[in-house]
Nucleic acid binder design. Structure first.
Lengths: 254, 254
DNA sequence: CGGCAAGTTGAGCCAGGTCAACTCCGGTGG
DNA sequence: CCACCGGAGTTGACCTGGCTCAACTTGCCG
């Protein structure tokens, strides 16, 4: 049997980005997956409901930003994670633990993948499995890193770290010192566990210090990269803590 | 060829806990894995160095608590994640991103798994693969949940949530309202992004309110479970935020 | 029993949360 | 084309939860 690339897949970054899942599939695998999967466009603010996730626990993001949000009982909201182009979200254990809701932070193109076919492909195709596996581990370690940012960093440090996270995850490497912030200030505040007012003030302070420049709300320009990196890594003038040198690091640095 | 259960595996919870990885393996798979893997006992405070992790990026925890720690440049330290009995830690992408160090928070029994054999088994054995996959997803979602705790919760809420996390993860379900805290206050503070002083004060306040009782530093007794749960879920007297009911949840059909 | 790390208690202070009033901007309808 | 509206973002003034520093007690190990 000779399988052709399905029409909808040609237009999807999961296929045409060489590093993504669907690009790794054999033509007949892609055809099988496509025939049982469905693409969708959803608008900012859309919440994927539990029923949908039950039926389609696995989905891929072709463009836009999805978020996983937790709602506290008194209405406090947290954005716990972002998912962007190329990410595969696997919610198959969502029944075991309350994970929160998947909410679109921008208009999003996504594709619901058939769990059966997905499983079959992952089982048979080594390359595809390695990729999915790596994507999941990335999500894990991103979450872990985010935890540590939230735990100990101050507002300006979190913001600086976030700028680097955006830079790192943006597939468009062309614009060197310009970083796209793909989400609203409001959502950013929730992701970093701060108030929108604080985000605004902190950005302003960084701009006043000549470290960044905010041309447009969604694009910031890094003027002093070393300084920004220092802030992101937690250099501070003075603390109660001893210098890092005082800590006995048993690790062998490379 | 008839493979027998290797001696060291008989004594390891990865094997004798029915739900863990090694228990899912066929005898010859287990024998192959065991012959290329090595168990170790390490003491509290031991850091697994980068070189070790390069050679042995995959390891399983048979008992004790490992942590993944980040060190900020000024010496601030964060415990970003815990790994406990049954967890499989896969550091194979640690070269791509700085993940921090693996440090033992108690005496730990672990087993370094041969990446080659591990990969072979995961590829061939569906049950084992499903288990590893689920464990990894659990780690992801635990990290995500932890992020959201850190982002928006106050000290007492974080502590309450932590008590439930310990309860949830403890394999010993016998003691119903007694929860074991498997780590020191100092480490706990770092995990929750607070100061040891604050941890102490907050525990005391919860005890004064009659919600918990601290018999021994490492065991707390829950006196008023509903109250504790309410706190963990973020019920507060009053906030700036609207009621959860005010949030319009848009949903999209399947 | 001495020494040291872990944990506790108290007092003061500041980063960031809160509230309120405002500007800015894109969309909508007359 | 403009008036209006509502949500996003900003700015200022105020307040408080939890960080900081310091002094102390407790518990553990040799």
């Amino acid at each position: 049997m000779h399988a052709r690339t399905p029409e909808k897949c040609r237009l999807c970054s999961m296929y045409y980005d060489a590093g993504n899942f669907c690009a790794k599939l054999a033509p007949n695998e892609l055809a099988a997956l496509a025939s049982e999967s469905q693409t969708a466009n959803i608008k900012r603010g859309t919440t994927l409901n539990d029923e949908t996730i039950m039926h389609w626990p696995i989905l891929s993001i072709s463009s836009g930003v999805m978020s996983l949000q937790h709602l506290l009982h008194d209405g406090r909201k947290t954005i716990a994670a972002f998912f962007m182009r190329g990410d595969i979200i696997d919610m198959r254990n969502s029944s075991k633990r309350k994970l929160g809701s998947l909410i679109a932070l921008s208009n999003v193109e996504l594709c619901w993948l058939s769990p059966q076919i997905f499983e079959k492909i992952v089982s048979a195709n080594t390359k595809a499995r390695a990729l999915v596996w790596e994507n999941l581990r990335d999500q894990t370690f991103r979450a872990i890193e985010h935890s540590s940012d939230l735990a100990k960093k101050q507002a300006r440090e979190k913001l600086a770290a976030f700028i680097f996270e955006c830079r790192h995850r943006n597939p468009n490497k062309a614009m060197k010192d310009h970083v796209e912030i793909p989400i609203l200030r409001l959502d950013l505040a929730e992701y970093l566990g701060m108030q929108p007012e604080t985000v605004s003030r902190t950005f302003k302070k960084l701009e006043d210090n000549g470290i960044i420049k905010i041309s447009d709300l969604s694009v910031i320009q890094i003027l002093d990269l070393p300084a920004l990196r220092k802030i992101a890594n937690g250099h501070r003038a003075k603390t109660r803590h001893a210098d890092a040198a005082d800590y006995k690091i048993l690790t062998v640095g490379r």
